[in-house]
Write a protein that binds this DNA or RNA. Structure first.
Lengths: 247, 247
DNA sequence: CGCGACCTTGAGCACTGTCAACGCGGGTGG
DNA sequence: CCACCCGCGTTGACAGTGCTCAAGGTCGCG
């Protein structure tokens, strides 16, 4: 019964500084509805946060660089990645509205971050943020929930990447993007892919060519159709899901 | 400069309920020394925690099962894993003294957990724990740091699994285990592997045979020697690290 | 219109997965 | 004490899959 892996991603209706509530453990009320921050929490954060609008393809920070800020996406898409000694690049995650990023270790970022589209985001100084968190347990719990959610996402990606067949990896990717970008519809069969094929390849740990061939295969099998480079139409949802789950 | 990936794992000198401190961001003091919990924090936890001694090979919980508890390892080794529809198994992580586990989503565990050796651990009811965390920001921050550390670990595993060569994956695995189990020595060239070859294969997303061949290759190249099934001697540390870093 | 970035397609190669057989080693029971 | 057995690990042969290298195609923008 691992069938809903990609379907349990909670709704995303964030605005402003709100943080998508993703409890570490919730009591299973059924609705993991978005809870907005209390006024006090919003104040706390607004005091230290800076709102930024940035163009596409902008590097926010580089791995190993001093980790001064944490970021919260309000709008647009960001990717985090690492460049390997071999020259290859691995994308760790794609970040959408409501996501936090800027993970560090020993005061240094563990990966690089770059905007894919134009974005608006909040930038928070790390020390000010940790101060606030230490004094506001409830707000911190939101953050904890976010990080736990990110942890599950990384586990899911870890699973995707272990698949041997490119088509299966791509199918899983499409399903998760579908859930993440178009959360509250059961109906739209359109999937927007803001990122390039190269980004997808780097995320799935495939070569560019393999992604291309996998796309062709899904098309040939009548599962999807590529309207253009950044827009996919799902022709057969159930077969897509079946393929995605055939890990 | 991704060279220290496996080396930045902090020291492990935990005892009792202490939680290894792994700051989300720390100011880079150089020492990420273990900080023990305050007496008050220890009290808070002891009140709700139950200490258990369990034999090897015992299943603690199964994925999709109701997530009632969170666990903290005091001694021994635990693995978390998922069984896939194909019949294959994927090990998500090996957990040692100081590690937390029991990640859930929507009130259900996202994977299964089983002891590898005999273990002692603390078992905490989820709701009681979240209560305590909501009222003790400092303690919660420890947990947040742990989860952030686990997140980095999963990212690292995600990287390992993308390698195409089995020997390289095994080398990375050996390095990380070396840092995790034998933290505070620069000198012991012995690595204890409590888990079986199958567990390693399931963690590295390789077949059992591939792990076996990779072991043979490392031996043939004079990098390691297998004293027995669960004990490896590193003959050439620098070549091991070099291989591990050649991602 | 033309350039460049992005994407697609093809051929040969390297690697792991799979299947199958064999070796080892600890436990059990006679 | 020994023979047996079963789990675990090793080794070999073959097929399947993606990677690499190379060439051609498409889209968008100046």
């Amino acid at each position: 019964m691992t069938s809903r892996v990609a379907r349990v991603v909670p709704q995303n209706a964030d605005q402003g500084l709100s943080i998508r509530a993703v409890p570490l453990h919730d009591t299973g009320t059924g609705t993991t509805a978005t809870r907005l921050l209390t006024p006090r929490e919003q104040d706390d954060l607004r005091r230290i946060a800076m709102r930024l609008r940035l163009p596409a393809r902008m590097v926010l920070y580089r791995e190993e660089g001093p980790a001064r800020w944490v970021f919260a996406v309000t709008d647009g898409v960001v990717k985090t990645y690492r460049d390997l000694p071999s020259g290859k690049r691995r994308v760790q995650s794609f970040l959408f509205a409501g996501d936090l990023f800027g993970l560090a270790e020993q005061g240094r970022y563990v990966n690089s971050a770059q905007t894919i589209t134009a974005v608006t985001l909040y930038r928070l100084p790390v020390d000010a943020l940790t101060d606030v968190l230490q004094h506001d347990a409830e707000l911190q719990f939101r953050v904890l929930s976010k990080v736990a959610h990110e942890l599950r996402e990384q586990q899911r990606r870890g699973l995707v990447v272990t698949r041997r067949d490119a088509a299966g990896r791509l199918a899983m990717f499409l399903c998760s993007i579908q859930q993440r970008i178009h959360p509250n519809d059961g109906e739209s069969d359109q999937i927007v892919l803001p990122m390039t094929r190269s980004d997808i390849a780097a995320y799935l740990a495939l070569s560019l060519e393999a992604v291309s061939r996998a796309s062709a295969e899904l098309t040939r099998r009548g599962i999807v159709r590529f309207e253009d480079r950044h827009l996919v139409r799902v022709l057969n949802q159930s077969r897509l899901i079946k393929l995605a789950e055939a890990v």
